[in-house]
Design a binder for these strands. Structure first.
Length: 501
RNA sequence: GGGCCGUUAGCUCAACUGGCAGAGCAACUGACUCUUAAUCAGUAGGUUGAAGGUUCGAUUCCUUCACGGCUCACCA
């Protein structure tokens, strides 16, 4: 039925051969005396003579990644989770029978090896084997050693293979993990409490986005996967958890691109008694903390494409991040005439003239948003806070005291991407209710992304929420930024793909 | 969802204007006791993503579909 290539048939036959010889090809345990990385770290600089004198015996284990056979001797490289080391197997040293058995191992198999650590005449740290053990047999051939696995579809679908043969891949995910760890440290050191709030919500709130819908059978109730934790975290601020954060998944039923995966990881944190200015300072500090702690630098390479050419730049988190009001950014960075920005009709005309796609139902504020996306965002390379957004684009933010058409909100842009979004939280329950009502009417007129009415959230605010500022940071994009990754799929281990055909 | 590009051996890639589908690595057989993209000699490996169509003849041209990449729209 199933077509099996000769390569696999041969390997399956080998498994049987080992069994026939009384060798279990999948043994239960194997005691390792040291990890490879540790040996590389400790002994790479030592001379061959010193190593010989110390007569160091080790038992290592790892996956065979390459092999160079020379008749009665073989060099191979084995890799464990910590590093890759060369092993030298000589017939005279391990015996004829053992050598014949070893010769049946394939690239991709896990083997254990005991022997003396020394160096070859070329100076490479090498374990000179006295004994080898088959730990686990591999049935599928690994991709080519030189080119690795390049087919991006296979890399994402079979990430396990990608991780085996493309060493840089693991490093990206190590960095991702360390970045998240640094975020946690940074916040917990400042007395923020990490919490987990519902991912399944009956009213999906906290962001303008289309949710995924699911159904709970026992409760006979439709539920939505959350688009943001925001409204629950604010309920906690109401309840007295005045410094709170959550790092977890959000789900949005929208397009997939190099910057969007349907499930993505967000940090959201809330701080009572402060405003968005405080958060800007804290955000700058946070970026420098990650840079220093994880990478030991505040300057990062940045690859981008301009006019079809790949170019290299540098992102610098050292200088103070610029803070530019939204409206000013349109004129100063977007080079849109001031009278156009101030006149909704002219703005629409300007947008159409420059082929910015508008929809008929777009309000003046939405037109501004689109002008921003089109003319300003592509120019925001070094870290910059865009501040003071139009009220209508921000249904959960607090109005500015001196200009109620604007809200106290900022978004942080780096490398032409939106990385963070923050604002002084709206805590006036009556104002909040009116804004929800406005969103509901937009929803009724066909805007599937508009916010829902959340009466329990209003009730929480009615009990009183202290003045609070909150911020969300997209972790995937943050990881892209720090690892200079061109696609969000390169920082997500298993990105969403269609079913394999 | 739209546009452009791609899918050939396990992997990385060739095959001119439609004319016998090829190489390197991996595999297999053999030689080789310090190699490292080991080397040398030989062998095998293919429904060219799928289904139709045009043609004497299709990897190549056309149509539809599947999957992927980039990009636009939407969005963080």
């Amino acid at each position: 039925m199933e077509e099996i290539s000769d390569l696999i048939k041969i390997r399956r036959a080998k498994v049987q051969e080992f069994r026939d010889l009384g060798v279990n090809p999948y043994i239960n345990r194997f005691k390792v005396s040291e990890f490879i990385g540790k040996l590389l770290e400790t002994f790479s600089e030592e001379t061959k003579e010193d190593l010989e004198e110390k007569n160091l015996q080790y038992t290592l284990a790892g996956r065979i990644l390459s092999r160079r056979k020379h008749g009665k001797t073989t060099f191979c490289n084995i890799k464990d989770g910590t590093g890759l080391i060369q092993v030298y197997i000589k017939k005279n040293d391990i015996g004829e029978e053992a050598y014949d058995l070893f010769s049946k191992y394939d690239i991709g198999d896990f083997m254990g090896v005991t022997g003396k650590l020394s160096k070859t005449k070329t100076g490479e740290l090498t374990l000179f084997a006295k004994e080898t053990t088959l730990l686990s047999k591999s049935l599928l051939p690994l991709p080519e050693k030189w080119h690795g696995l390049k087919d991006v579809e296979l890399r994402y679908r079979q990430r396990y293979v990608d991780l085996i043969v493309n060493p840089d891949v693991k490093q990206v995910f190590v960095y991702r993990s360390k970045i998240i760890q640094a975020l946690r440290e940074f916040l917990t050191d400042r007395d923020y409490l990490e919490v987990e709030t519902p991912m399944m919500q009956s009213i999906p709130g906290g962001a303008t986005a289309k949710p995924f819908k699911t159904h709970h059978n026992a409760l006979n109730m439709d539920l939505y996967l959350r688009v943001a934790p925001e409204l629950y975290l604010k309920r906690l601020v109401v309840g007295g958890i005045e410094r709170v954060f959550e790092i977890n998944r959000n789900f949005r039923n929208e397009g997939i691109s190099t910057e969007h995966n349907p499930e993505f990881t967000m940090l959201e944190f809330y701080t009572a008694y402060v405003d968005y200015h405080y958060l800007m300072d804290l955000t700058e500090e946070l970026f420098r903390y990650i840079g220093t702690k994880v990478f030991g630098t505040l300057k990062f390479p940045y690859t981008y494409v301009e006019n079809g050419e790949e170019k290299e730049g540098t992102l610098d988190f050292e200088p103070a991040f610029k803070r530019i009001p939204f409206k000013e950014s349109l004129t100063e960075i977007g080079n849109i005439p001031a009278d156009t920005v101030n006149d909704p009709q002219k703005a629409v005309a300007y947008a159409l003239e420059h082929k910015v796609p508008l929809e008929k139902k777009d309000s003046p504020a939405k037109v501004m948003g689109k002008l921003f996306d089109h003319f300003v965002e592509p120019n925001l390379v070094q870290p910059v806070f865009i501040i003071d957004y139009p009220l209508e684009l921000s249904p959960l933010s607090k109005k500015k005291e001196d200009d109620p058409s604007l809200v106290e909100r900022f978004e942080l842009f780096v490398a032409r991407k939106e990385i963070a979004n923050a604002y002084t939280e709206l805590n006036d329950p009556i104002d909040q209710k009116e804004r929800f009502e406005e969103q509901v009417s937009q929803r009724d007129s066909g805007d599937e992304e508009a916010h829902w009415m959340d009466n329990d959230f209003i009730r929480a605010l009615e009990y009183g929420m202290p003045p609070t500022a909150g911020e969300g940071i997209g972790i995937d994009r943050l990881a892209m930024l720090f690892t200079n990754s061109q696609s969000i799929r390169d920082v997500i281990l298993f990105p969403q793909l269609k079913k394999e055909s």
